[in-house]
Design a protein around this nucleic acid. Structure first.
Lengths: 143, 143
DNA sequence: TTATTAGATAAGAATAATTCTCTTTTAAGA
DNA sequence: TCTTAAAAGAGAATTATTCTTATCTAATAA
């Protein structure tokens, strides 16, 4: 696994303890909100300003280190998984799980290549798959 | 086209001028935010409390008259189109267009029927298709 | 038609998420 | 080590949304 510091400097970002913590938090939490990240970091050691968290997250997005996830629940969540993927959204809780499916991606790409939407140039397709997690998986918690 | 009053009473909702205005606003604006709706209504005649707008929107969602749309831009938007559909999201502006495609829906349904996700019961699949509108369509404005 | 009342609206305070402003600090390169 | 552009801190400001309480009204039943 590649070092967090390297990830930052590879993108031309200054390496700071705050940025390392934020990146680490995104990787260890499940699709956290900005507030989840702030609390996670404060819990361990340093204090961190909320504004810093937001600013760093924006920077990370700009550099392609993370992505925003959209939900019709509440706030913006962040995702550090970079390979193309979709999301399973619980209709019962805030749980979101990554869903990677290359076969599906190929199916969609082929479909839209054939279909050719007029007047729209597709850049990315992401599925929001809403439903229920079975077998108590909805009991999984963030922290 | 069915009368707005009927739409409301069919869902067992009391028919009030505010509710009629809000429903009318959703139909005539393009995926408006709560604030778009409020301003639209105030512009014409009556005053309306912001809290009322939010409460009515929640009620409409609960009764299945409208849906929330999720974007990674800013706030929550609302959609009065009830037939199942997806959205084209502009990466350059806040423009969102409805995308109806039954063939695609069938393709996806078949795919997931075959696939059988374990531990997840799918209720609804919606595609967020991000890209660029060509031919100046991005110039289209809300109001 | 009117009286009753559950549910709806108004008004504005409260909360939560996010952004902004300004000052101080620090990482990275000369 | 020094310099400096960029980053972080602190907290005020803004924005979106929710909540509270008092008042009002649509729908129903007499």
């Amino acid at each position: 696994m590649i070092d967090l510091k390297d990830k930052l400097s590879q993108k031309g970002l200054k390496v700071t303890p705050q940025r390392i913590s934020i990146l680490e938090a995104i990787y260890s939490l499940n699709h956290p909100t900005a507030d989840d990240i702030t609390r996670h970091i404060r819990q361990q050691h340093s204090n961190i300003a909320t504004g810093t968290v937001y600013k760093v997250l924006e920077k990370f997005i700009e550099k392609g280190l993370i992505k925003k996830i959209t939900t019709d629940k509440d706030v913006i969540r962040y995702d550090g998984l970079l390979t193309h993927h979709h999301h399973l959204h619980s209709t019962e809780s805030v749980l979101i799980k990554d869903y990677i499916d290359e076969e599906l991606d190929k199916l969609l790409t082929d479909y839209f290549n054939k279909k050719r939407l007029n007047d729209f140039k597709i850049e990315e397709i992401s599925l929001q798959i809403k439903g229920k997690f079975l077998n108590n998986q909805m009991g999984v918690e963030y922290e």
